[in-house]
Design a protein around this nucleic acid. Structure first.
Lengths: 216, 216
DNA sequence: AACGAAGTGGAACTGGCCCTACGCTTTTGT
DNA sequence: ACAAAAGCGTAGGGCCAGTTCCACTTCGTT
């Protein structure tokens, strides 16, 4: 990847530990979100905390590496939407898939909602995948399935909202998001019932994203 | 209030400090949510941490006291909705008001979305106020302004969702919630475009609420 | 089998926050 | 003016998470 010139393979024990850390990280991030305790991850991987730091100097390095499979899944969902013959079908399936991933994995809730500061590379890819949907969106509008004033950023806002739903309900009503997503899809469906306030333009949303450290 | 039999007035300096603490708490809670650091509140009130603890032995005592004006405002908004001649008008104004309060005050985002464990008394009142809306909801359905499958709990879920939006956008796109709320209102408006998944019944939502400590 | 490089884990330091104990200060009532 | 009651702030112990350091172990090579 983007590391040094000479690619030196890891020693086998080191490689094994690296995998154990990633596996543990995926579990823990899924349960507790991207701001979970690193020591918990090390503990669960049966590895000293220093080992974790040596392999992943910053939290973001670990997040990026652990999140990769989910990113692929997200990209795949976007591609599926693009490839779908019926654009509304593609669009709505994508929405449900992404929301369901958020529900199943607290890390996805954090990352899809761009609420967690990730590597520039990771969120470049995430945005790219999302932006790819512009095509479906246009086609869905063209056949008057999607309301004309819908914009790509509405999708991001939806994921932020869904993260809120999921976060509040995951313990005792883990399927609440389904009804919520259905409402949103109804809202997106043409014709728009009433005029909407301006969307926050892509530029501002982008700036918004960079640094909502999720605070707490 | 609910304290001891003999009501002993506070010494004037103590009363002054109490007010300072409440004022600081309101500021800090509004900025950082209900899980803000108590020491920060004491610091900002120019008061020792022990004073804060003496006056408000638990975090929830402080939250309840600090939140009171907001609770009143919420109740007032609900009453206004009930009193509105046009039920849809009343309903939608209420939704916008509650969302806007969440946007303006991170504490409201936490409490309205029932994401933060509060005193039983406080959230009893909050629920009562919300439940009062059942009347408007029925009237709005009766005149086919609100879709027939809407339930009261959808309102709570909306507030959870809006908390997510607000949390992610407050720094750089603080009015994003307006467009989101408008979408939701469109979704709620009759006729329902497509069948919805079952709502999570009141009982389960209630259990959900008790203890979503907002984790992180 | 033996040596050096690579890797390891835990101890130690930091800083933030919660919460309590305790000796000092202010108010209040006489 | 003074003493008792009420209130106060600081200091300190506990906990938890992040981060760095370093003496020790394991691996891979010759």
């Amino acid at each position: 990847m983007g590391s040094s010139d000479i690619f030196r393979p890891l020693r086998v024990d080191a490689a094994r530990n690296r995998e154990a850390i990633l596996e543990a990280a995926r579990q823990v991030f899924a349960e507790s979100g991207m701001d979970a305790a690193l020591e918990e991850i090390a503990r669960r991987a049966d590895v000293g905390i220093a080992t974790l730091y040596r392999r992943f100097p910053t939290r973001q390095d670990l997040v990026a590496a652990a999140f990769e499979p989910r990113l692929r899944a997200y990209e795949a969902a976007a591609r599926a939407a693009i490839a779908a013959p019926d654009p509304w079908e593609g669009f709505s399936t994508f929405v449900r898939t992404a929301c369901s991933m958020q529900a199943a994995d607290a890390g996805c809730a954090d990352v899809f909602s761009l609420t967690f500061p990730t590597t520039t590379e990771l969120d470049r890819q995430l945005r790219a995948a999302t932006a790819g949907l512009n095509d479906v969106i246009e086609r869905a509008k063209a056949q008057a399935a999607l309301r004309a004033d819908f914009v790509l950023e509405d999708l991001v806002v939806l994921l932020m909202a869904n993260a809120g739903v999921v976060n509040a309900t995951k313990r005792h009503a883990p399927e609440a998001w389904e009804r919520f997503a259905a409402y949103m899809l109804d809202a997106f469906r043409a014709p728009g019932a009433s005029p909407l306030p301006e969307p926050v333009g892509p530029a501002r949303l982008a700036r918004a994203i960079r640094r909502s450290t999720a605070r707490r």
